[in-house]
Structure formats: structure tokens, C-alpha cells
């Protein structure tokens, strides 16, 4: 699942990060807010959108910071602190900006933005980008694909949760246990896409 080559076509990368190496279903990133939010379809749409926007912006900025600040000064060991600070700053700024520019969008996204700082999917995508040394274009398509993949997964899960909420489940199975089973089935279904892309 880690075998994406560095010089892969950005469009293939976009497709691969949505389906074959979905950041949630094959890399387990962003699970915490995923399990908590996925009970409601509307909020999962909002959260998915917010994650996608933040992912694209932070991954692009981290690419610039890494290649023009961290690498030339040889301070890559500070990476983790810089990236997490960058994510927090971007989320904070985005929150203020959206609040100022579009109150209606703020109503839809606002409550989700603080959750995103600690969403592992964001930091995870940044670290994957660094580790696989993507180019800027590749990083952006990778981030976009990861965001869309996460979005797709959370909306699908919310839809399944809605169906399953009508069923009476035994003690212990209701709640997180059945959610994990549903995610498991979804992950299994998504492995069916693997054959579509030879590199990933």
C-alpha cells in the first residue's frame, strides 16, 4: 500500500489517493473525528468539505516551507513542530477568513474547523508528501485526492449508519463496534479498486 512511486503522473495519483490507497481505509488516518461525526449525514458532508480544503492548502504550504525553508537551512528535524504549527495556523486563519467573507459558509463549516487541527489525516498527508518527495503538482493532487477520498468515505459511512440505526443490536455491538465493522466492510470493498491502478 506504500508503493506509490515518486515520479507518478499527478492524475493517476489523484485517482489512486481517492480509491486504491484511501487515506482513511488503507492508512487509518483521521479515524477519531471520523467515528465521532459519521452519525449524521449533514455534518459529515461539512466535515469532509472542510478536511478537503484544509488538506490542499496545508499540503501545498508545507511543500513550500519544506523545500524553501527547512531543507536549505538543514533544519528538517524540526519538521513535526513546524508542520503542526502550520496546520493550526492555517485552520485558524481559514476560520477567520470564512467568518468574514461568507457567514453562510461559516455556519456550515465553522464548527468543524477546530476539529481539523488534530485530525491525523492532515498531518498524515503532509508527512507522506515529505516522505515520498512529491513535486508541488503531485503534492496538490495527492492532497486533493486524499481529501476527496476521506470525504467519500465519511459520507458513505454516514449513509450506512443511518440504515443501521433502525436495527436493534445486541449489547456491546451498538455504537463503536458496529461502526468499526462497517468501516471494515468498506475497506474490503475499496480493495476491489486496487487492480485498477498498477502502481498503487
Amino acid at each position: 500500500m506504500e508503493a506509490i512511486a515518486p515520479n507518478i503522473n499527478p492524475w493517476v495519483l489523484l485517482f489512486a489517493s481517492i480509491f486504491t490507497s484511501n487515506i482513511l481505509l488503507s492508512n487509518f488516518l483521521g479515524m477519531c473525528s471520523f467515528i465521532a461525526i459519521s452519525k449524521d449525514q449533514k455534518s459529515s458532508m461539512g466535515l469532509g468539505m472542510a478536511v478537503t480544503v484544509v488538506l490542499v492548502i496545508t499540503v501545498a504550504l508545507s511543500w513550500l516551507v519544506r523545500n524553501y525553508i527547512l531543507a536549505p537551512f538543514n533544519i528538517e528535524y524540526l519538521g513535526y513542530i513546524v508542520y503542526i504549527g502550520l496546520i493550526a495556523a492555517v485552520v485558524q486563519m481559514l476560520e477567520m477568513l470564512i467568518d468574514r467573507l461568507s457567514p453562510s459558509l461559516y455556519m456550515a463549516l465553522g464548527i468543524f474547523l477546530p476539529l481539523i487541527t488534530v485530525n491525523c489525516a492532515i498531518l498524515g498527508a503532509v508527512l507522506f508528501m515529505v516522505l515520498r518527495s512529491y513535486s508541488l503538482l503531485q503534492s496538490i493532487t495527492f492532497a486533493l485526492g486524499s481529501g476527496l477520498g476521506w470525504w467519500l468515505a465519511i459520507v458513505l459511512l454516514a449513509a450506512m449508519q443511518k440504515r443501521i440505526s433502525k436495527v436493534r443490536l445486541g449489547p456491546g455491538l451498538a455504537g463503536p463496534a458496529i461502526t468499526l465493522f462497517l468501516i471494515g466492510f468498506m475497506a474490503l470493498a475499496f480493495t476491489g479498486f486496487t487492480a485498477m491502478i498498477p502502481v498503487a
Binding site: 481505509l25 488503507s26 492508512n27 468499526l180 468501516i183 471494515g184 466492510f185 475497506a187 474490503l188 480493495t191
Partner: peptide
């Protein structure tokens, strides 16, 4: 495969 981790944790 990743899916088994979800199943095992759920179980």
C-alpha cells in the same frame, strides 16, 4: 490487509 484491523478491533 487493512480491513482486518477494523474487524478485529470491532470484535
Amino acid at each position: 490487509m487493512p480491513a482486518s484491523a477494523f474487524f478485529l478491533l470491532g470484535a
